[in-house]
Design a protein around this nucleic acid. Structure first.
Lengths: 156, 156
DNA sequence: GACTATATGTCAGGATACTGACATGCCGCA
DNA sequence: TGCGGCATGTCAGTATCCTGACATATAGTC
């Protein structure tokens, strides 16, 4: 069994390492959030609602990189557990603005702390300046792959 | 519809941008490989076999960040299309060493060129030194999140 | 006022990946 | 020699996500 220890040039491929880093982070987050009965998309949904209340299902889907259908399922799960609320009828148009309940806000506070702890661990050997640089590098990668608008913050 | 253009502090979260970059790259790769009738895991499988012939199903699964079961399905798909071959009986133990067929090698050559083109586009504004730095940064992130062995090439 | 375009929420179907479990085949050790 | 530990390949069931499609509500245009 060759054990793929060193697959060779792949270790020098930014794309490969990017996927690898994302997978590793995803696993770490998953393990951290499991005790809270939260999946990563569920946490993302809470975090988004915490930062901007009243986001619609479609807004949340875009923010969490999933489809509206998937986010709908996530949102329903959070709703039946009393962590978020949505009006039964749309106050305007068809979009149903979501909001955190007090319980949701409490859960988010705990989850957010754990997530930030994981992120801190991931960046343990990075200075604040290096963190900012890495963040800008990743942003540059994103904008280079999406010629059109990627969020309106780069490609000025 | 708030449009989540600027979700706020999330744009400064390395974790968030990491997932975003990986998702964007995945989409770009998917679009590039679709004309070749290859999914990203299928391409990863071919690439791994191209760089190291004789890898077993379990080896490939580890290299592509999926489970053995998933990789098995991928491998079967590639087998029936005549791109890879596996012996019917194991020459040693239970592992079945996979190999690229000439057709598989041809397909890989095309796919690999397209993938590298996407990667080049992603890193268009990066100097070789900056690419190496980004790669090392990502590697540091990975090793910081996995205290144990992550492949045997870092954490020396 | 009618019509098109866009955006939203929702339903159905299919593809994909994972967890759990099992049988089989090596290796190390008593 | 017999045994447990470990790795591999495989099967079944489940969960998740995506593509395609539809009905509805708003905004813009003539």
């Amino acid at each position: 069994m060759p054990q793929v220890e060193t697959v060779g040039p792949l270790d020098e491929s930014v794309g490969y390492m990017l996927k690898r880093a994302a997978t590793t982070l995803r696993s770490a987050l998953d393990a951290t959030l499991r005790p809270l009965d939260l999946s990563v998309p569920q946490y993302a949904c809470l975090e988004l609602l915490g930062q901007r209340s009243g986001l619609s299902n479609a807004d949340l889907a875009r923010g969490a990189f999933v489809t509206r259908q998937s986010m709908n399922g996530v949102l329903r799960g959070l709703q039946v557990r009393g962590l978020v609320t949505r009006p039964v009828t749309a106050p305007s148009g068809r979009s149903l603005p979501g909001q955190l309940t007090p319980a949701g806000r409490r859960r988010l506070r705990i989850a957010s702390a754990k997530v930030r702890s994981v992120e801190k661990q991931m960046l343990a050997h990075f200075s604040p300046a290096e963190q900012g640089r890495l963040c800008r590098d990743l942003t540059a990668c994103i904008s280079a792959l999406s010629p059109q608008d990627v969020g309106g913050l780069i490609e000025a």
